[in-house]
Write a protein that binds this DNA or RNA. Structure first.
Lengths: 245, 245
DNA sequence: CAGTGGTCTAGACCACTCC
DNA sequence: GAGTGGTCTAGACCACTGT
């Protein structure tokens, strides 16, 4: 069998193989994975090695396993903490509500000094910019302004974001190594308030997120939420033995 | 050797053995652990089993390992994401600034219906309540209102919180299994604005946190931050192969 | 019952570090 | 060189689920 990379551990190759199938949608949530025995035969490796790969996927929340039944692609990606917000579309649909993504802009612009610094480019270089409004039952809940590094995602402008919102497109196509979140409370500008159909006196949650692949910046995005219609949450169950406070 | 629990997996017994030595201070940060070979001899089990225990301790951030050198007790626990805010005192001191905790109230009160529901008690039952103001270089940065379950933390009222803030006291004394965070953007009430020496028109970040031990609620706390003086952040490096968005 | 995952063994080879 | 951890094998026994 061919090697993807020089001497990547066998268990890691199995993990990548399965992760890819999940990520690109070949194996949707709830889909049953091949059994350990089948993977042993398929990869020509020992069961302990397959078992380690699957155990680590469980730890990462990618799959769930039931002894005597099988292994399945995990339903939700509770991810950790703030990542939940990345998938506002599925979150809204999960509540049984209508979701709509309205594109206000998709364009190529010259990077301002700020944006250039954030994306580690030179000012004036070409970057992709998008502005879109996410609606829950036609009520605006998030104004998303995004800059994307064209070196990493050259096809960004060609996508139909009304079918697949920018965040989901990036999730499915760009692997990342690092993610940074900042959360602020702000008052909206007049223009933002108008897009969000809210008062300028009402506070908003502002989530700023940057992601990297290797050490290359991929995207910088600011998500503005009327606080009365959106809150950020996370539930965490302990693995080890940390403490409360 | 004696068994702690009936038929706990061998690798889990090794993990517990090591975790206990770390937690009770027998093995301080940086201390060198026995080698895999020594643990094999000590427990009379195979090396794969010892190896699994040690790998999982690495995943949990308890220890670090260097091939060719040895295994060592990990230095600090940076914790993940939002938990950072739990330790506002050390965070402020880490910036080289003065930290002060001013107690505005420490008392026993009858649980309102809301608080009773949050803590899973009956309305009117006795609960502990504290209100304190955290200052950075004498500037208020967090107004912390907290309710504590007296069944879990009976000695809460007797503590000197100016020496050790409530969050740190709980961190050090109550193990937890679950933690829930909610983040809102709000405008402060007149009273809150006065405590925080801010305008009522300026937005605040409101962090609400609940913790459980087993399934028993321990504490419910609301931390109010002037957004101009505080933002919430998290940096995350991927372990597996998740995606960006 | 056959199939699944959970665990465990007793070896093995390798790359690495320290002396 | 001896010691360390990183990985891997080819078996094994068990408890559990489904039919």
């Amino acid at each position: 069998m061919k090697r993807d990379l020089p001497s990547l551990a066998l268990y890691a190759q199995v993990k990548e193989h399965i992760s890819r199938k999940i990520q690109d949608g070949t194996w949707p949530a709830g889909h049953r994975l091949p059994s350990e025995h089948e993977l042993v035969a398929q990869f020509g490796i020992s069961r302990m090695t397959v078992n380690r790969a699957l155990r680590e996927l469980v730890d990462q929340g990618r799959i769930t396993r039931v002894a005597g039944v099988g292994s399945f692609v995990a339903e939700d990606k509770p991810q950790s903490t703030l990542l939940q917000i990345a998938n506002i579309a599925s979150e809204i649909r999960h509540r049984g509500h209508d979701y709509r993504c309205q594109m206000l802009a998709v364009e190529r612009v010259a990077a301002s000094p700020d944006v250039a610094a954030w994306l580690d480019l030179r000012a004036g270089e070409s970057v992709f910019h998008s502005l879109c409004l996410h609606r829950e039952n036609e009520t605006p809940v998030q104004l998303e302004e995004r800059y994307v590094n064209p070196l990493v995602v050259p096809d960004y402008l060609a996508q139909d974001f009304t079918a697949m919102p920018p965040s989901e497109y990036l999730v499915r196509n760009v692997p990342f190594d690092q993610i940074e979140h900042l959360v602020d409370a702000v008052l909206p500008t007049a223009e933002q308030a108008e897009h969000l159909a809210m008062s300028m006196a009402d506070p908003c949650l502002l989530l700023t997120r940057r992601t990297w692949t290797r050490t290359t910046p991929v995207t910088w995005v600011r998500c503005l939420h009327p606080a009365s219609r959106y809150r950020l949450g996370s539930r965490f169950r302990a693995n080890g033995n940390p403490s409360s406070g």
